[in-house]
């Protein structure tokens, strides 16, 4: 056990799974190279350094650099998965997946169903997401609700280094297509991560904090904001539960509903745009299945229904923060009292 960054945790999972199973390959733009590779390649290892060192350890046949051709290499990875490999494709920004929707939605997500369970598609698609890096509208979106909408895809949003390694390991060993989304601002966060391989099952929420007053459900980086808000609220005497569902598909409804029934006051924090987002989805599940337990309206803290702005002040205003989360939790807590 040692302290590792979110980036190191992902890199370690890739190294260990590639060593464990020769069918695991990685494919994407600029992913080759890294420490130990010769010449110019040494500079790469992925746009965010997550695949560093894989080329040296596993060679060019299993670490495939591609041209700027997302539709081609995502399609190639889906095909490779259907025919026996376990590809991990890397897309620099989730925003670019628009050009490969058919490969993902209509092919990878459908094979198991349309071939009567006889086909498996052990395909992992890693991509970064999220605002806060001054990367403007086309490199900052939080598009996980779009993938969550499609039956046949599993969608993973790790919020900590421990979760990142265990969930990526599970994603690679899983026989279904997995969309694995990494918030750019989390890469340098650190935490305790076991050195050996381990898996975290999908559909198992993490309860980071238990309190009896308000339930805060948050996704990805928003989990940290929720914890900041909960710690501030604790000083005011408002005791919050903070739940990180870890995966949006499958979704751990039981944990969410159980806590909602206990507190009766719910805040959902989602970096995605509000229409048809995770906050809307989880809110509808709670309203439908735990209505009788609610003591206050379900509060949603999300981005507004706009593209991500480039201007720093506007981008800051766009993103949910701990102040907004705390205000929503306070409103839920005092409602009806």
């Amino acid at each position: 056990m040692s302290v590792k960054s979110y980036r190191q945790a992902l890199n370690e999972a890739l190294h260990q799974e590639m060593a464990r199973d020769p069918h695991v390959i990685v494919i994407g733009e600029d992913i080759a190279g890294g420490a130990g590779a010769s010449g110019q390649q040494d500079a790469w290892g992925g746009a965010f350094g997550v695949t560093k060192g894989l080329l040296g350890a596993f060679g060019p046949a299993r670490v495939r650099d591609t041209p700027i051709s997302e539709s081609a290499f995502v399609g190639a990875a889906v095909g490779a998965a259907a025919t026996g490999l376990r590809p991990v494709a890397e897309i620099m920004f989730v925003d670019f997946l628009g050009v490969c929707f058919d490969q993902i939605f209509n092919q990878a997500a459908k094979f198991r169903y349309m071939f009567g369970g006889k086909a498996v598609t052990p395909f992992v698609l890693r991509a970064t997401f999220g605002a806060g890096t001054r990367s403007a509208s086309q490199h900052s979106q939080a598009l996980y609700p779009i993938f969550t909408h499609i039956p046949g895809l599993k969608v993973v949003i790790p919020s900590s280094p421990y979760d990142a390694k265990g969930l990526l390991t599970q994603a690679i060993r899983d026989n279904d297509p997995v969309i694995f989304l990494e918030n750019k601002l989390l890469y340098d966060t650190v935490g305790e991560v076991p050195d050996g391989p381990y898996v975290i099952p999908f559909g198992e929420a993490n309860i980071l904090r238990e309190g009896s007053d308000v339930t805060i459900i948050a996704f990805g980086r928003m989990v940290h904001i929720a914890m900041d808000a909960a710690n501030a609220l604790a000083k005011e005497g408002i005791d919050c539960t903070v739940i990180d569902p870890r995966t949006t598909s499958p979704l751990d409804e039981d944990t969410i509903l159980e806590s909602a029934e206990e507190t009766g006051r719910v805040v959902i924090v989602d970096e995605a745009n509000p229409r048809c987002g995770m906050a809307a989805d989880v809110s509808s599940i709670i309203a439908e299945k735990a209505f009788g337990a609610l003591k206050a309206p379900i509060m949603k803290v999300t981005a507004p229904h706009t593209p991500v702005p480039y201007a720093p002040n506007l981008e800051a205003a766009y993103l949910p923060d701990a102040t907004r989360v705390a205000a929503a939790a306070r409103a839920a807590f005092t409602y009806g009292k």
Binding site: Y162, P194, I200, N206
Partner: peptide
């Protein structure tokens, strides 16, 4: 959580 973390380790 501690017990689960231990049980998730390979082997």
């Amino acid at each position: 959580e501690n017990v689960l973390r231990f049980k998730r380790l390979d082997g």
